[in-house]
Design a binder for these strands. Structure first.
Length: 479
RNA sequence: GGUCCCAUCGUCUAGAGGCCUAGGACAGUGCCCUCUCAAGGCAUAGACACGGGUUCGAAUCCCGUUGGGACCGCCA
């Protein structure tokens, strides 16, 4: 049984985008499932547009997504000799010819054809031109009779009339190779068995098949996956929001949430929605990739992200959260507190950015008070109750959830107040906001010292004071 | 303009001729739970683009129409 080999072949002209990531993922899954090899190839034959930064960005993104490759990255720019050799071989075999038309002439003819509403095809005029003492490009002499059938794992058999396919340039007049030549040479020499790529390449495929045949190479299997569209059903672009994979990292997404989302965009396994990487590798199949293009739905991605935030160990989330907290100026000393804080926020955060916002107060000596919240909940008439609460909290030996809860309950019984009318002011006093994790857990994590002290120092005047006061500063509640 | 691809709820999709009064998920709506915000639970609304065939029977097969998309480069 032959080894399954797939490849992802981005061109380094920008960051890794959502569509590319999905193509990479499908190739990765297919290779892993068949215990084959996943190869990364950088298609940088267009020297003018390719940049090293793009290559790095793509590598970073793949690494973040967990798409590790077995071979590569290979750079086409380092294989020019090989392509040139192939082009000249075809020339020698009379399967290609020199074209002396200039780029300008070609462009003018194309414009003219468009104007007349005709297909802008090359007319093959240099096929019989022979040799001239002029600069030339090399064109592939594509067979003009018969049909070429693309047997595609997703689209089925797609037939093209050979007469519709024109002679494409494989070697530019500056001796650099073009895309179609490179892909064929590389896929053949790298022994790629399955070419899984976007269906924008479907129309190129017959040309490539012709070249495989001209070289006498085996034709790989093809699978053309449908495009990803934006909400208006046009090709996904920046207009529709973030398209860069790494932008999602910055927005606080978990890599596996994106992976899971991308896998389910176009592929399905019955009614299942949640897949671990291991499950994806086990269950993925090209047969279950849909034929139609799909709209990228940020809301569902967000839901998946929330799901994984909820269902990942707090310690792991804490690790991922750390840079987000530090970006907000939080100083993280120990490892225990972040994990505890995370635990209280997992059910209420859809992204790590959101979680960092919610966790900020745990880690800052100074918190920002929401003015409206202060005015609404920290009224003087609550001072008395707060004072009583502080006294009770002070009396707790083991400062844990159950004891704290009991302190509140006792106070509720004693004062006849509703829990809410006590909890809300305390929440504002401790967090500066009206929304937070459960107040008992907040108090437990903050600890006795900080709770009692900041509770005592809670603002009752709309000044710009922060929660944590220096011990020497005066307190509003006299203690 | 030519070639090619595609077509089930708003979105992702299940559906391989009878299991479909079309299932699930996200988003929406309502209720429950509740110290806030969430999460969760329950319920609800919502689709086979259209027209012809084939068949006892079609979301499923065929043809056409319409609508979307991709490609037509000395870009990849």
């Amino acid at each position: 049984m032959q080894e399954i080999r797939t490849r992802f072949a981005p061109s380094p002209t920008g960051y890794l985008h959502i569509g590319g990531a999905r193509t990479a993922l499908f190739n990765y899954l297919f290779a892993r499932q068949h215990k084959g090899a996943f190869i990364l190839r950088i298609e940088d034959t267009d020297v003018a547009r390719s940049t090293e930064e793009s290559t790095t960005a793509i590598l970073d993104a793949m690494n973040w997504l967990g798409l590790d490759y077995d071979e590569g990255p290979f750079f086409q720019s380092q294989r020019f000799a090989l392509y040139k050799e192939h082009a000249y071989k075809l020339l020698k075999d009379d399967k290609a010819y020199k074209c002396f038309c200039t780029a300008e002439e070609l462009e003018a003819r194309r414009q003219e054809a468009f104007k007349q509403g005709k297909p802008p095809r090359y007319d093959g005029r240099c096929r019989e031109a022979g040799d001239k003492d002029k600069p030339f490009a090399i064109r592939f002499k594509s067979p003009q009779i018969g049909k070429t059938i693309v047997k595609d794992h997703i689209k089925g058999a797609v037939a093209f009339e050979n007469s519709e396919i024109d002679d494409l340039i494989i070697l530019r007049s500056d001796s650099t190779p073009t895309y179609n030549l490179c892909v064929v040479v590389d896929d053949a020499t790298m022994r790629i068995t399955h070419v899984i790529r976007g269906d924008d390449h479907l129309n190129n495929t017959p040309k490539q098949i012709m070249m495989y045949e001209a070289f006498g190479y085996n034709i790989p299997e093809f699978a053309h996956v449908p495009m990803i569209l934006g909400s208006d059903k046009t090709r996904l672009s920046k207009r529709h929001g973030a398209t860069s994979v790494m932008a999602y990292k910055e927005m606080g997404y978990l890599p596996h949430a994106l992976v899971n989302y991308l896998a389910r965009l176009g592929w399905s396994h019955g009614d299942e929605e949640i897949f671990s990487m291991a499950e994806l590798i086990e269950k993925f199949s090209l047969e279950n990739v849909g034929k139609s293009s799909g709209v990228f739905n940020p809301e569902k991605l967000l839901w998946l992200n929330a799901h994984y935030i909820k269902n990942t160990k707090p310690e792991e989330i804490a690790k991922l959260l750390r840079p987000f907290l530090e970006a907000k100026g939080c100083k993280i000393s120990d490892d225990e507190k972040p994990a505890m804080a995370v635990k209280t926020l997992q059910e209420r955060s859809k992204t790590l950015v959101e979680m960092a916002d919610g966790a900020e107060f745990y880690f800052k000596d100074e918190i920002v008070y929401d003015e409206k919240a202060v005015q609404k909940f920290l009224k003087p008439d609550i001072k008395d109750v707060l004072q009583k609460l502080i006294a009770r909290l002070k009396g707790i030996e083991l400062f844990l959830y159950s004891g704290i809860e009991k302190a509140f309950q006792n106070l509720v019984e004693e004062t006849g107040l509703k829990l809410g009318s006590i909890a809300q002011p305390v929440r504002v006093a401790l967090t500066g906001k009206t929304t937070s994790p459960g107040i008992f857990e907040v108090i437990e994590i903050l600890g006795k010292e900080e709770t009692v002290f900041s509770g005592a120092n809670a603002r009752f005047e709309p000044k710009t004071r922060k929660r944590w006061l220096d011990k020497t500063e005066h307190t509003i509640l006299s203690m």
